[in-house]
C-alpha cells in the first residue's frame, strides 16, 4: 500500500504499540495482561508496518526471522520450566531469585522463572503471528491472478 497518511502515522504508532506491548507483558504478572496479549499487540504493530511499507521492511526491522523468534520463545518457555526443576522440586515451579519473604512480607524484585515463561510466550506469539501475516501478505501481493494487486496502489 502506498499511503502517505498511513506511513506517517505508522512511524509514530508502531513504536508506541511496541512499547505498550512490553507494558502489557510486564503488567500481566498480577493484573490483566501477559505474554499472549502483549505479543498480539506487538504483532499488530508489525502488521501495521507491513501495510504501511512492505513486508521486506518488517523483516529488516525485526532483524531476526519471525519463525526463529517464535521457536526461541518456545525454548525460553521450556527453559523456564527446567529452571524451576533445577532450583525447586518440580518442572515449571516458580523460582524467584530476587525475592525474599520475611514474616509474610515480600521484599525484593518479583522477577523470576514466571517472567521468563511469559517472555517466551510473548516471543512465540509475536513470531508466529508475524510470520503468518507476512506469508499471507507476500502471497497477496505476488499472485498474478489477484486483480486487487494491480489496483492496490490507487486505494
Amino acid at each position: 500500500m502506498n499511503s502517505l497518511i498511513l506511513s506517517a502515522a505508522t512511524r509514530f504508532l508502531a513504536p508506541l504499540m511496541l512499547a505498550y506491548s512490553l507494558f502489557i507483558l510486564l503488567r500481566g504478572h498480577n493484573e490483566p495482561g501477559g505474554g499472549f496479549i502483549g505479543g498480539l499487540v506487538a504483532a499488530t504493530a508489525f502488521a501495521l508496518y507491513a501495510k504501511a511499507e512492505d513486508t521486506g521492511a518488517v523483516r529488516r526491522a525485526m532483524r531476526i526471522a519471525p519463525e526463529l523468534l517464535s521457536m526461541l520463545g518456545l525454548g525460553a518457555a521450556v527453559m523456564a520450566g527446567v529452571w524451576g526443576w533445577w532450583e525447586g522440586d518440580a518442572f515449571l515451579e516458580s523460582v524467584w531469585p530476587f525475592l525474599v519473604v520475611e514474616d509474610g512480607k515480600k521484599e525484593g524484585l518479583p522477577v523470576g522463572s514466571a517472567l521468563l515463561f511469559d517472555v517466551g510466550v510473548y516471543m512465540v506469539v509475536v513470531g508466529a503471528v508475524t510470520a503468518l501475516f507476512l506469508a499471507l501478505e507476500d502471497d497477496a501481493s505476488r499472485s498474478p491472478d489477484d486483480e486487487d494487486a494491480d489496483q492496490s496502489g490507487e486505494r
Partner: peptide, 14 residues
C-alpha cells in the same frame, strides 16, 4: 521438553 528443544535447535539451524 526434549523434542521441543530439538525442534528449536533444528529451526535455528534451518
Amino acid at each position: 521438553a526434549v523434542p521441543f528443544l530439538t525442534g528449536v535447535v533444528c529451526l535455528a539451524l534451518r
